[in-house]
Amino acid sequence: MDDLTLYTDEELLSLSLTNKRFFAAIVERYEKKLAAYIFRLGRLGTEDTEDLLQDIFLKVYQNMNNFDTQLKFSSWIYRIAHNETMGFFRHRKVRPHGHTVLESEKVLEVFASELNLVEDIEAQEASAHLNACINELPLKYRDSLVLKFFEHKTYGEISDILSLPEGTVATRINRAKEQVRKMMANKGYSYEQ
């Protein structure tokens, strides 16, 4: 068996059209990333997350021929994941409550510095507050914020994933940051103007 890690996503997708083994490699490459993304969009149980992941990959499989080569593959698969997740919540008629897993101090630091927070954000309490504030954001703001700071996507990629103009993405991220700043200020944290 070839070392499938040597193939790019696009190559794997193209090969998947003739051999499902390559599609399995795509699933393996993206399942963790997408599971984390789904979890950040709305807190789901393991079983629901797995069901949703399967649906996402089935959708990817069925729509392989619709992949736009001008997009990054990751943007395309994230877009499908995003749309399926939103559809899932719509179907369940629930408002998704996010759960930003701040898995590393680095992410936290970057985000805190983006907000110009002056407090020691590495403290556990501050981290929990920041998490809570992000999760309280309206979904449309949380969406962009999660993709920018937790999935490390560029504005262009976020625009492709959410199918929005880049300007709208930038506006949403700025508004999201502004709202988090206000919420943090209400909790007693200060930030540099």
Partner: peptide, 21 residues
């Protein structure tokens, strides 16, 4: 990871899914 990939492929077989042309 293998489980999810396997499950997806299994459902592809079960539902006889094919990529749309």
């Amino acid at each position: 990871q293998n489980t999810i990939a396997d499950k997806v492929l299994e459902r592809v077989e079960q539902l006889q899914l094919k990529p749309r042309s």
